[in-house]
């Protein structure tokens, strides 16, 4: 195993070393208690033990709102240079579930006709994974996303006294290469510590959802009253979509400058829970009921995305349930549907 050990007090110098070469982002705790991925200013502010960031990694690749084109009558539609050029970035502290989620987003954005904005940011961003601190809402182990074996350049697992570091790519190898003095090759004792970490970590996940035959169960339950009960509480606010690491919908809108001669085309995160989402010109809505919209969201995760891309579009991060202002527990809903189907 090609692995290294990074002593705990070497993390700050390593992050500073990265910062001299690239834009570095790392988890920081806000005054509100929320943890977010923020631009690195002071390594002392970086947290290495946290449960989940408010927004997942997708905010770095498919931006919450971004300019796609500037346009003018004379020149047509052009990608503005400040958008077209991307700095090299390193994101430190991504959990296993979030790394899996990026691979799920890749299936949409890099599949078939690649999205150039996403593709370029993905290519120019190095990812350093970090072991996580699960809470009672995490159910990643049910989707096999509590651990990663690829999708990172480096992965840091917290072990006593520092981090057990695995290399995922040649780029990861280069990152270590520029700070070789800070890392030491892993020895037998480090491997033993890592083995212990794996065992202990696996025992930290308490919440589970049965995934076997889940698409079939949900299809059987299409007409269940449980959808309506959840929809009665749903505010249609789209919070669950915004915080979801695998939700990728966006809408496109054009804005004219005050000159009325130039303007910009912008895309913005969207949600299938919004009433207007399936409404076509003329007013016909293909999903007029909130229950139909809620079902669309969960079916996309557990029935339709797997049918197309051969994996569930859920990594069990628990963000949707944590973010719902109406207290809808999506895992409990799925469990109730299964119970009803097998009753």
């Amino acid at each position: 195993m090609n692995a290294y050990k990074l002593p705990e007090d070497h993390l700050s110098p390593f992050l500073l070393r990265l910062g001299s070469q690239a834009e570095v982002y790392a988890p920081e705790r806000q005054a509100s208690g929320e943890v977010i991925f923020a631009r690195l200013t002071d390594p002392a502010r970086v947290v290495t033990e946290y449960t989940r960031t408010t927004l997942p990694l997708k905010k770095f690749f498919s931006l919450p709102s971004e300019v796609m084109f500037r346009f003018s009558v004379d020149r047509g539609y052009e990608v503005p240079e400040e958008i077209a050029s991307v700095h090299r970035r390193v994101i430190f502290g991504a959990h296993a579930c979030d790394l899996h989620a990026l691979q799920i987003l890749d299936r949409t954005f890099l599949h078939d006709q690649p999205d150039p904005y996403y593709a370029q940011r993905r290519e120019s961003t190095a990812l350093i994974g970090l072991s996580c601190t699960p809470d009672e809402l995490c159910f990643c182990n049910s989707f096999g996303t509590g651990f990663v074996s690829d999708g990172y350049d480096l992965f840091f697992a917290a072990v006593p006294g520092g981090f057990f570091v695995q290399i995922g790519t040649t780029r990861g190898n280069d990152l270590i290469g520029m700070a070789k003095d800070l890392f030491a090759p892993a020895d037998e004792a480090d491997l033993l510590a890592y083995r212990r970490y794996l065992k202990e970590h696996n025992g930290k996940f308490t919440r589970e959802v049965t995934t076997s035959a889940l698409p079939g169960i949900l299809e059987l339950e299409t007409g269940s009253a449980l959808w309506g009960e959840a929809a009665d509480r749903c505010l249609g606010c789209g919070s669950c979509s915004m915080v979801c690491p695998t939700c990728y919908c966006f809408s496109v809108s054009d804005r004219l400058d005050l000159s009325l001669k130039t303007g910009e085309r912008r895309r913005t995160w969207d949600s299938c829970l919004f009433k207007e989402y399936a409404t076509v010109a003329g007013g016909h809505n293909f999903r007029p009921g909130r229950d139909a919209r809620l079902r669309q969201r969960l079916f996309h995760k557990f029935v339709d995305f797997p049918a197309r891309f051969e994996r569930y579009a859920c990594v069990g991060c628990g963000r949707c349930t944590a973010a719902c202002p109406a207290g809808i527990d999506f895992v409990a809903l799925i469990k109730d549907l299964r119970r009803e189907a097998s009753a």
Binding site: D112, Q113, V252, R267, A307
Partner: peptide, 14 residues
């Protein structure tokens, strides 16, 4: 919206 399978809008089933 996008016409190329990214924006999610015209999704029906799989």
């Amino acid at each position: 919206q996008c016409g190329v399978g990214k924006c999610g809008y015209c999704n029906v089933g799989h």
